[in-house]
Design a binder for these strands. Sequence first.
DNA 1: TGGCATACTCGAAGGCAACC
DNA 2: GGTTGCCTTCGAGTATGCCA
Length: 391
Amino acid sequence: MEKQNKIPVLRFPEFKGEWEIQKFGNLTNRISYPVKVEQGELYQQIGIRSHGKGIFHKESIEGKGLGNKRVFWVKEKALIVNIVFAWEQAVAKTTSKEVGKIASHRFPMYQPIENKSNLDYLLYFFLTKKGKSLLELASPGGAGRNKTLGQKEFENLKFLIPSGLEQGKISSFISTVNEKLKALKEKKSLLEQYKKGVMQQIFSQELRFKDHNGKNFSDWKEKKLGKVCDVKKGKQLNKEQLTKTGEYPCINGGINLSGYTDKFNSLENTITISEGGNSCGYINFFKVKFWSGGHNYSIEINNPEETDNDFLFQLLKHNEAEIMKLRVGSGLPNIQKKDLVSFSLVFPMSKEEQTKIATFLTAIDDKVNQCQGQITNIEVWKRGLLQQLFV
DNA sequence: TGGCATACTCGAAGGCAACC
DNA sequence: GGTTGCCTTCGAGTATGCCA
């Protein structure tokens, strides 16, 4: 049993023998380069996101804005920890992008000792369940979500670790998976950019489709949304009513609707826009059958013979920024129904042209969704893999 | 250095009153 | 009764201040 626990479930075949227990403090060197703050100089601080989401850069500020805070130069190729949220895996590795930036004393940095530890391996380890539980152990605080990492406890953390060579093999394998994820995310982003560009060309009529005889379609004409669709407001129901009726599967705020579309077998003929009155003014488009909440509008085509629903969906998405401008009121602005109804859009007169456009754009959407599906699958697979590659 | 309180922003949700 | 406008509350995320 003891022996089994000293090797991971999944292992590269070229490595034999048990992993050894090591102290984190013996695998790394704590580094610290205090900044001599000059009042008029500009400094850029970094922050670390929880849940292994990496480092972010803040706006530059003058030295006088730092007050009495002790700050340190960030060095590259180090494991850096936000000690307040280490227990939430606010752990990252510094790169050349962080050189010249600073961090407060709550962000200690550790450089791996050659042949003893591998930076990527250490980072990946602290992102596993085992790594997280160790970070929690070393963070005993009880101030809500602020649980400061005890730095002595952190350095004294003991865990099983393989040879430097095996660490390198494991981390490079995980890095390969990460590269694949990165490539997929880039592909998705490129597809989204491509769609944006194509939409611009299509809706400005710079790019036109031909009809089934190879001839040009007729000109597009401006129509008010209210002439093409029925704009209806969702019912304003409280929690109790929602539970009681079971009739309105969607709750206030369009943003939540997507979570319900599959569950309640959505119908394609309705598009919902969140009015945004109490929800920060966001506009979302979902194809749903039901809606509720005083802050949602549903838009249903009133003549399916003339208007292609998928086309309208794409057209509204393309005009999202303009629709956002309809918001009025201070604080949390609303879109008024009268403004939505009189919002003008330019439509192709031929439904065949609308359908061709919708089919083309929906195909890109499908590719984007495919990419997202692959990303999700790999991320799930990776999570499971991480637990098996480490002890 | 560490523990804890507090600050601040953002996103989201619940709900109510006045108005049409 | 539906629509509109706005207030309040909550929670996540991240950081800072203060004191022992």
